[in-house]
Computed example of a mutant assay.
Amino acid sequence: MTLLLTPTQTAEALPYPALADEMDALLRDPDVVVPPRIVQPLAGGGSLFVMPAADARVAITKLITFIPDNAARGLPAIQGDIVVFDALTGQRTALLDGPTVTARRTAAVSLLAARLLAPRTDGPLLIVGAGVQGRAHLEAFHEGLGVREVWVASRSAASTDALVQHAHRLGMSARRVMDADAALANCPLVVSCTSAQAVALRARPRTDAFVAAVGAFTPRMVEWAPEVCRWLAAEGLLVVDTRDADHEAGDLLQAGIDVHALATLADVVREPPTHRHQGPVFFKSCGWAGWDLAAARCVMKGLAAAQ
């Protein structure tokens, strides 16, 4: 029997701290295989992503579309599903809501990176971009790091106010800020999750900052000004989520940075730093089917424990 999880059920099966733990375990698992994803351009300017991954027990394929201008249609930018199979029998075991998994696993990756690399984790947290990823990162950093204060910057006043109100419902202190560049001086935790169609941040983060740059996941997308990325490369620590970032990390590629020379999150997990890095940390997240496999593993473990 295939378990069909609604968006709400999918979210409930993926608590952020547990999902981050599962990602840590996946990066240590030698049986994990993740081939390159297929990105098929669509006629309207969007993309179809086909992303398989497997370990010794679980196999998945993520099938999602990304349509950047869907907000104008009143539709989500990401739509689709994650199909989960038993790797031994080939039986389909679950169908997970693709947008929910994408939001939660992306935020959980940032949470894991912050756990390992952030010079300090007490906040305030600055979120630039108040969409789905802004909400997911707010929840992940609140649940996983205990962050109590958040500042929100977005081009949409309605989206900003909605995220601030959500933070208040979680018991957090929250405020709307008009100038994200100015706010960087006050926030040691930063998440940029804009639509990445143009540079959104031109100021330098604090020297004790941890930045999770999420929005740009193709070579043409960008959130951070090239001169800031070059300063970070000279004065801070740059880490990418996987080697796929070598050809996808738009912020860094457009700054002329040799992405292939940067450490990945797997490198950090396998050889944790003995002390916190001195200087800002810039974590560039581009996405990887392995994160979706970790989500499927987390869901299946939770279901097995409940039986």
Rank of each mutant, 00 (worst) to 15 (best):
A261W: 00
R92H: 03
H247D: 12
M172Q: 14
A113D: 01
D179P: 09
D181E: 13
A234H: 10
V58T: 15
Q40R: 15
A213N: 08
P273K: 11
V222G: 00
T242L: 00
G45V: 10
C187Y: 08
A107V: 07
V32E: 04
F210D: 06
A158D: 15
V269L: 00
A183T: 14
L95N: 00
T6K: 09
A198Y: 02
P17D: 07
V177M: 11
G123W: 06
V281W: 01
L63M: 13
G236S: 05
P219H: 01
G279C: 03
V214E: 02
I64M: 12
A153T: 07
I78L: 13
C229G: 08
A140T: 03
L265T: 00
D181P: 13
G98K: 06
E271M: 08
G74M: 08
R204C: 07
A25M: 05
Q9M: 08
D244K: 11
V177R: 09
G302F: 01
Q197L: 11
A200K: 09
G146W: 04
C193Y: 02
V128M: 04
V177H: 11
T93S: 10
D55W: 03
A113L: 01
F217L: 04
P68L: 10
V33Q: 11
R202N: 12
P36H: 12
R105N: 10
D267Y: 03
L145T: 08
F210E: 01
D251G: 05
G144K: 06
C193P: 04
R169H: 14
A183Q: 14
H247I: 07
D241G: 09
H137N: 14
A54N: 10
D208I: 03
A306M: 04
A136W: 02
G279M: 02
Q254I: 03
G215I: 04
G98N: 05
E12P: 00
Q91V: 02
A183W: 08
T100D: 05
G290R: 04
H142S: 14
E271C: 12
T274H: 09
K301C: 07
Q278C: 10
R120L: 06
G90P: 07
A198Q: 15
L26T: 13
P280A: 14
P119T: 11
R297V: 06
D122E: 15
L303K: 13
P99D: 13
I64N: 01
S192R: 00
R169L: 12
L252V: 14
R202V: 07
R220A: 13
H260M: 06
F217S: 03
F49I: 13
D24M: 03
A203H: 07
Q254S: 05
P17T: 06
P30Y: 09
G74V: 07
L145S: 03
L237Y: 00
L126Y: 06
F85V: 04
L3N: 04
